[in-house]
Amino acid sequence: MASKAERPISPHLGIYRRGVHMMASITHRATGFILATAGMLTLLWWLSSIGGGEESYQTFLTYVVDAGEEATGFQTASNWFFRLLALGVIFSFFQHLFSGIRHLVMDMGAGFELNANRTSAWLVFIAAFTATGLVALYVIYEYLDLGA
């Protein structure tokens, strides 16, 4: 029996020419990880803050959304941390959603032709960036008053 460590180990990340379909695959995994950790932990915090009553909900808003006029430096930093995180989570949501739909189509055996596969991988990224941009613009104009 050959030594275990010397066998080539899948996936062979180093040997393929890089392409957009490869990026779509690795990004799908990375965005899945972001949603599983940052996305779900924030959702759990939000849910428990609702159940915890008015005060605990206000704590969530203060640290995550907006600390208001009398914000401490830490709270302002926390707000901007969560705004950037939200941007990342929203992009991750759309990328994982569109890429996931692409995977479900490919599971039926469709879309494996080189051109179709490359085009659909590009479409996933374009759709994800567009949707993220639209949500960000909506939030900025509706809630942050940065455009005023």
Binding site: L43, L44, L47, S48, I50, G51
Partner: peptide, 8 residues
């Protein structure tokens, strides 16, 4: 999460 939602 389930406990939180159910309790609420």
């Amino acid at each position: 999460g389930i406990f939180t939602v159910a309790k609420h």
